[in-house]
Write a protein that binds this DNA or RNA. Structure first.
Lengths: 230, 230
DNA sequence: ATTTCGAAATTACAAAATGTTACAATTAAT
DNA sequence: ATTAATTGTAACATTTTGTAATTTCGAAAT
């Protein structure tokens, strides 16, 4: 998530339709017929403890995956972007909350369907394996960031991660929009809103970034930012 | 790792030998013939960036998996115990260090062998999928602990995790030995050695735990400890 | 068994980073 | 336009870290 993360895409199939066997074609249809669901900003797709009935493929928007402690403290464990799958892992129940941070659209794949298919299709099973491995690498990178970084380092790493993501999707030049709120950034990085705000202000004062309307970031000094990310 | 973590065991096969098909038998033999390796305390099995030639199955001892920043700061991302696999995930290179914290023994499985087998055996592929999913859940639990917990909460959660592990392996009664050093605990929980030491001392002062020779912990008040882990 | 030495752990105190609280200023929504 | 939600700023409190001195522990050698 924070740096150079592989994305979990194309689990169902990345072959052109014409190359599929009839079995594969049937399987793909069952996934492609999966209903879509529109999720409003702040709406939950599912909650920690709900039975894990579906895997969700993000088509649009950003979903915050989080765990909440008894007293309300929240740790965001990942953001899911278009192309990502949510809810993988052979568990009975979901083990985190999934909440849209802006209007989102997801494709719903019944967990049973996917897992039955994987039980007889090693190719699919391996794709699931690879997808979860990518999630694992992301989680561990975030852990290093949160466990060892200062507030400034965490924010710098976070911004670099967003920049890289924006660069991949073609929108270039160190300019990107912060879809998530300060509170989401704080809960991702294990900081308070105030520290996030202070640190962003400090980066602005150092002329490393520019902040437009609190939601659009321009990176002015990439080298300095990468240096600050340690 | 910290609370109720599923263990990644029996990837290669959990069936009695007599039930295996001849293909399965051949495959199992190729794994069972895997050479063992003895790792001295503090010795590295592999390092971040090394080509990922083998998966390792821990037979004995405890292995610290960690990432190290340029300036020496270290985050332990997991401890691998007997029964765990190290190095799963379809990557070219290892993406963390694996260092024995005490004398250890591991079985070495060539990565290519395992992955070729998985490519034609959905059952094996699903086991890999499940094993990595368990690692993911562990990593995310640790992230919540480190991102949101106070020093006391992190230590309390850590001790509870060790207690549960000891309970599973039959050694009962809230007594267990701390194989890892204070510096390992600190690097796991994102604290300093001093804070770990001070917090353990405070728990001793509260009569929640007893510390024998710095390495053996007796839990005196389980309820209080769980309460502190919040 | 005793001594010696080095590594690890503990403790106390000063310093720094982050969290708290409170309120002002924006921005978005009705 | 008015209200609610989010963000920004600042003073103050707390937690955690850093530093350094001291103690404990364990392995090696006598």
């Amino acid at each position: 998530m924070l740096s150079g993360t592989t994305r979990a895409h194309d689990i169902v199939s990345d072959k052109p339709h014409a190359l599929l066997s009839s079995d594969e074609r049937k399987q793909r249809e069952s996934f492609e017929n999966a209903p879509f669901r529109r999720i409003e900003a702040k709406e939950y797709i599912f909650c920690d403890g709900d039975p894990r009935t579906h895997i969700f493929h993000v088509e649009q928007g950003v979903i915050a995956l989080s765990k909440v402690l008894g007293d309300g403290r929240r740790q965001i464990i990942d953001f899911a972007y278009p192309g990502d799958y949510i809810g993988l892992g052979l568990r009975q129940d979901y083990i985190f909350d999934a909440q849209a941070i802006c209007l989102a659209k997801v494709k719903c794949i019944p967990a049973a369907t996917l897992e039955q298919a994987a039980a007889s299709d090693p190719n699919l099973a391996l794709k699931l394996y690879k997808a979860v491995s990518a999630e694992l690498a992301t989680a561990r990178n975030l852990l290093v960031c949160v466990g060892q970084g200062t507030a400034m380092e965490r924010i710098a790493m976070f911004l670099i991660g967003l920049r890289d993501r924006a660069a991949v999707s073609g929108v270039n030049d160190g300019v990107f929009s912060l879809v998530m709120r300060r509170s989401d950034i704080a809960d991702l990085l294990g900081l308070t809103i105030e520290t996030v705000s202070r640190t962003l202000t400090k980066l602005r004062g150092m002329r490393v970034i520019e902040i437009v309307n609190a939601t659009e970031i321009h990176i002015l000094d990439e080298n300095k930012l990468e240096q600050l990310a340690a």
